[in-house]
Amino acid sequence: MTTDPQSPALEVEGLTRTYGGLTAVDDVSFVLRAHGALGVVGESGSGKSTTARMLVGLERPDAGTVRIGGTAYDAVPRGRAARLARARAVQMVFQDPYLSLDPRVRVRDSVEEVLRLHGTEGARTVRARAVELLDQVGLGPREQEALPRELSGGQRQRVAIARALAPEPDVLVLDEAVSALDVSIQAQILNLLRDIRAERQIAYLFVSHDLAVVRHVCEEVLVLNRGAVVERGDAAEVLAHPAHPYTRLLLASVPHQGWDPAAIGRARRAMSNATTTKTSQGAAQ
């Protein structure tokens, strides 16, 4: 596959997904530039995880297109060639490191099987490449031989990252990838993600509810509320001077010195009242 280095890593146009009467993702469009990092911020029900799952082909959008490295991809890949192409375009790291690894597969094998599927040949080459990847994410020989249950949450997440890097994807989707980790471990993984992006030609789509973490990883940010984009822009800028009331509410909700939780509650209620009124007016018209 030829990838034009100038074209964006990921272009999403009018992505929409409804479940029954509920619109989970509502006409979401964005561009992730090559080698960039875009944060997708929102709460539960914001559609951020559904968006991530549609990008990797786990969920079928009702409408919209996904282009990765300038190439358009089917909603859900069919057939071996399409599957492999999609996997080499985009990979994903999931939230819960305790569930995202097959409990019966040893760490090194779980990387090796991905390498073999994607055309690395020769037992020795596969082994060497797997060891190299696992070294890169900071897992030593002892951990490489281990079963997932013998590892801590942080180590498992490192395995998941190594496995996602194995097909050398253009885009890595990280869906709340550090949310389940202890603070001291979270910092290690965030540093690892930083190092990986410095060393490789890879772009991140970083889905998270944690604004400080997004600010740390991403240059750009997209704020989702109830399936729709409410604000986007330079991460530092948006988080320092939020324009949309919802972004302001999210920011104010982060505990800090002199924090007044009661005021946030009032703001949130005021906002959801406003939305409800708007929708009911819309329905009346």
């Binding site: 001291s184 471990i185 910092a187 290690q188 965030l190 944690d210 604004l211 740390h216 988080l239 800090h256």
Partner: peptide
């Protein structure tokens, strides 16, 4: 002190975090 430094913040420059090595 290590926990505080390992926590990403909403203010200040974005730089490499000072992680606490190892695990809890």
């Amino acid at each position: 002190a290590g926990l505080l430094r390992a926590t990403p913040s909403l203010t200040g420059p974005v730089e490499r975090l000072t992680a606490v090595p190892g695990r809890p």
